[in-house]
Design a protein around this nucleic acid. Structure first.
Length: 269
DNA sequence: ATCTACTCCTGATTGC
DNA sequence: TGCAATCAGGAGTAGA
């Protein structure tokens, strides 16, 4: 499920674990996208978290000598529990017991992952990631340069984490809608001016979603850990046959690269 | 090197 | 109501 804003929201919610000591790690079910390292407990137990941060859609716990890299995949969540709370939920995979509270990794579809590394920048999941969309590295010039040599459609391009990270299927449609760019356009044909719109709107859409995500933090991490992701005001995604907010044409749904794309044929071209 | 199709999995929703 | 088909917010990998 989670794209950058949802991961960022999760990250902020678990900042309370920063500087805490990890007492123990229990893997209830190691079967995720990759099997969880069976030595995770031996490697991390007793160590202190020096920093918790996000890179792309990954949440990284730095323990100084090791880093814990977590990806939520499509359906993963982190749930905060008190140390004396002992209930389980279906699909709880990992339990990280810290000195104050516990953190539970739950993932029904198992597309997520948990890795341990001693140099995360060189880790195969991290090494070839593109720039952060909210950083100045993701600029008009960067995008225009990168886009010129590409030969795929623009929606697929911005979802490719090698080009820019954090943008998934929902926000890709939203960003292109806001930029008046048809998602089917081949990247080569995108103008520099449009690159400017895409970079600017990527930042705006993601920032707005993070802002809204913050307000749902409490519900998201309530004791019952209510799943349901919030949905921000979406202009295009999941609005098939509803009126375009700009031109009143009906929003179209098509399939691109096996994923649903929503857009307005009239004002995105 | 780059692009596309396929794949991993469970659960919610849709259709007959 | 029941059961099968379809779809879901990700992304590595094989093969073209």
């Amino acid at each position: 499920m989670p794209e950058l804003p949802e991961v960022e929201t999760t990250l902020r919610a678990i900042q309370s674990f920063d500087q805490d000591t990890l007492d123990s790690v229990t893997i209830h079910n190691p079967s995720l996208r990759w099997l969880v390292d069976p030595e995770i407990h031996q490697k991390l137990a007793g160590k202190k978290v020096t920093q918790i941060f996000r890179r792309a859609k990954y949440i990284i716990f730095d323990f100084a000598d090791y880093q814990l890299i977590i990806h939520l995949g499509m359906s993963g969540t982190l749930r905060i529990m008190g140390k004396n709370e002992n209930y389980f939920k279906k699909h709880d995979h990992a339990e990280l017991v810290f000195n104050k509270n516990k953190l539970i990794y739950n993932d029904p579809r198992r597309f997520g992952s948990i890795h341990i590394t001693d140099s995360y920048l060189e880790h195969f999941l991290i090494a070839s990631l593109g720039p952060e969309p909210l950083s100045s590295d993701f600029s008009t010039n960067y995008l225009f340069k990168k886009i010129k040599n590409s030969n795929t459609n623009i929606k697929n391009f911005i979802m490719n984490q090698k080009n820019v990270v954090g943008i998934g299927n929902i926000y890709a449609s939203e960003i292109l809608f806001k930029s008046y760019v048809d998602p089917r356009r081949i990247t080569k044909t995108i103008t520099k001016k449009e690159c400017g719109l895409i970079t600017k709107n990527s930042k705006e859409v993601l920032k707005e979603a993070i802002k809204v995500g913050g307000t749902t933090l409490k519900d998201f991490f309530s004791a019952e850990g209510s799943a349901g992701y919030f949905k921000i005001q979406l202009a295009a995604y999941d609005r098939e046959n509803e009126e375009c907010t700009r031109c009143k044409n009906l929003i179209n749904k098509i399939t691109q690269n096996q994923r649903a794309t929503y857009f307005c044929k009239v004002c995105q071209n």
